[in-house]
Amino acid sequence: MEFWEAIEQLGAVRAVKSSFFTYPIVNALHIMSIGALWTSVLLMDLRVLGAFSSVERAPFVRLLRRVALAAFCGALLTGPLMFAIRASEYAAMPVFLAKMGLIVLAGVNFILFQRLAGGNEKEGLKLPAAASIVLWTAVLFAGRFIGFM
């Protein structure tokens, strides 16, 4: 608990907390990142599941994976800053913890997907691709609910 309170007291965190403009801007950039992440993940996973078969799979997936990773970095830069403003409160919220748990699951799923993608068996990729859509959608919903709890 003291750790979270110490984070709330950091100079940069206090500056964002008391700002009129920075907080909504950070908030907007976070939404932008999540939107880009969700869309690129969805398109990539749908391609793996067999949709858009007229588009060549490998370069499509490679491009969208790059977009998704960049978007995730954007979310990673902005999210913790908003969290830090009321760190001790958010850290105690079940929906926040659920979101973090879902991100970990999505990460494990991504690693699993990458491992399987190394082999020749493409059918086995469908399950992690479907799980990825479900997990990232759940992350987005859980994230939005943090503001409403």
Partner: peptide, 16 residues
């Protein structure tokens, strides 16, 4: 999945 998550979250209070 999304609906289940929403249903879980609904009974709680909100700031927004």
């Amino acid at each position: 999945g999304a609906a289940a998550l929403g249903a879980l979250a609904l009974p709680a209070s909100a700031h927004h």
